[in-house]
Design a binder for these strands. Structure first.
Length: 197
DNA sequence: TTCACGATTAGCT
DNA sequence: GCTAATCGTGAAG
């Protein structure tokens, strides 16, 4: 386990590029290692439209401060008063792109007590890896929370982001389609994610 | 200060 | 398919 840590230059690129290229890389915290198999991109704008689903779309606030800084830092927030979600900042200072890590394929360090899909969901993987809001603003090029070079041979599938009401049809969710650790099967149409076309 | 609501999950019908 | 749980955030008063 001497894989190279992804450096600042990896993160300080277009958010969608960073999102796609995070697939297959290894998220490391302490002894826990998980292979990233599902992410979502949250951008400033997409095809000329503001991304109103992104927390940063309301501007710089105490919570979103880290999004406006350099790429390669952790943005962790509490959702529904219950779960913590991990994002990786992208782009450079002043451009608030980030990538939500939605699912991991466990590699090592997890107590697999019959719960092999314990990292299949954004709230589940933070709990399994011990990532909390205490990691808000953590530099991902330094221990204890880092992303290491991994491998990917599978093709990338794009689809609508999950659980949002704005910009619900934008294809900014990226995942490895046949990987059983992805949080959900390809989305079927529903109230929040209506069929388009 | 108050208040509506959310990038989810587990558990139930 | 539906909903409770649970609380920080940000906008409004």
């Amino acid at each position: 386990m001497a894989r190279r840590i992804l450096q600042r230059s990896f993160y300080e690129r277009d958010t969608i590029t960073v999102a796609r290229e995070l697939l297959g890389q290894h998220l490391v915290h302490g002894r826990c290692v998980g292979r990233i198999v599902e992410v979502e991109a949250y951008v400033r704008e997409y095809e000329g439209q503001l991304d109103r689903a992104a927390h940063a779309s309301r501007g710089l606030t105490p919570r979103t401060r880290v999004l406006f800084g350099p790429g390669g830092f952790a943005y962790v927030y509490l959702i529904y008063g219950v779960h913590e979600c991990l994002n990786v900042t992208a782009e450079g200072r002043g451009i608030p792109g980030c990538v939500l890590v939605r699912a991991l394929e466990p590699v090592s360090g997890f107590d697999i007590d019959g719960e092999e899909r314990s990292c299949s969901g954004p709230g589940k993987l933070t709990r399994a890896m011990g990532i909390t809001r205490a990691h808000y603003g953590a530099d991902l090029t330094r221990a204890p929370l880092t992303v290491h070079e991994g491998t990917r041979t599978e093709p990338i599938t794009a689809g609508p982001r999950i659980g949002i009401s704005h910009c619900a049809d934008w294809p900014l969710r990226f995942y490895l389609a046949d990987n059983r650790f992805v949080s959900r099967s390809p989305s079927k149409p529903n109230k929040r994610n209506p069929q388009v076309g």
